[in-house]
Design a protein around this nucleic acid. Structure first.
Lengths: 170, 170
DNA sequence: AACGATAGTGAGTGGTGACTCATCTTGTCC
DNA sequence: GGACAAGATGAGTCACCACTCACTATCGTT
């Protein structure tokens, strides 16, 4: 499980099950005993990952500081993407036969809450909607991964997205 | 060639060469006679596609209207992505053995020109840089494709990005 | 019509990767 | 220590795909 996380984080979901088994120091058969299908293994991994993200978002909600919480979450998620290719697959619901279609629900709710608080605090434009934020999130993660954003470029690019969401000074 | 364009547009670069041949109404051997390697076929396709994009950008530069040209180009490119999965592969330089690494150069130059004119016209913040615009472009295309943006969502999401790039009224 | 050249064919090859299963190992209970 | 269950093994199967090549069809030239 840990090994699988590593392998998929490094190589993405198209990494072979053999590679996962090798890294875990077991035989392929063992992997397939625990997870009848590669998709099952991926789903289990995704579930854990999703939970982490939701916890992260919840922690930011609890911490207060609504003016920056959403942006902070955004930045962290994109950072994580750079180191973990599984995240993108999760967000893109790609490479999995039975898509985790609605599985993003909890994450979306968490983002919605962060957004709502940011708006109530007057930090984010009132007309920004959750689906737009999710769309930007997916785009930023995908872009960071495939476009090879450096930390500096990431900061500047996210800065533009944030500027677009920020409420103009009254 | 036309068939290949269709197939890769629909299924992305991982479509099989057999499928391309079938669609073209020829045998696989024929495809490989013209393009010794799948990568060669892809490269040829990408080259044409890239040229189209550059021409598109150049036309917008020539048309004047520097205040909206960049955003117009941005929107068109993202729209095109929705219908053509090859575009993303091009922007991500993915799925091709010999990457077209520097091949994006002409496109980047065209974007740079659009950006510079937008800035000179006072429509775009002076501190926005070309690499940021390219990063947003890649992100938007990837996001649109894997996030399944509807036309409405696309409009609103791009709107946020554009707002982030737009110069505040003086 | 005979010839070579050029293009087209499609069964075959090799490699890869998901998944299986007969066999072996380990642990547990009496 | 013997018997049984639960887990682990890894060579093997099957499907898919990029790519090859011996052969065939078409065409322009003489």
């Amino acid at each position: 499980m840990l090994a699988a996380e590593e392998v998929f984080a490094e190589q993405g979901t198209q990494a072979s099950t053999e590679e996962v088994a090798r890294r875990a120091g077991v035989a392929v058969g063992t992997v397939f005993r625990h997870f009848p299908t590669k998709a099952d293994l991926l789903r289990a991994l995704m579930k854990g990952l999703l939970q982490q993200l939701v916890d992260d978002a919840d922690a930011l909600v609890a911490r207060g500081d609504p003016g920056t919480a959403l942006f902070e979450f955004f930045t962290r998620l994109v950072e994580r993407t750079t180191a973990n290719r599984t995240v993108v697959s999760l967000l893109a619901a790609e490479g999995i036969d039975v898509p985790i279609a609605g599985a993003l629900g909890p994450l979306t709710s968490a983002v919605q809450e962060l957004l709502r608080r940011g708006q109530r605090a007057g930090a984010i434009r009132a007309e920004v909607r959750t689906d737009e934020v999710m769309a930007l999130l997916v785009g930023a993660c995908q872009g960071a991964l495939y476009g090879g954003w450096s930390p500096d470029l990431r900061r500047r690019t996210l800065g533009i997205m944030f500027a677009g969401m920020t409420a103009p000074p009254v």
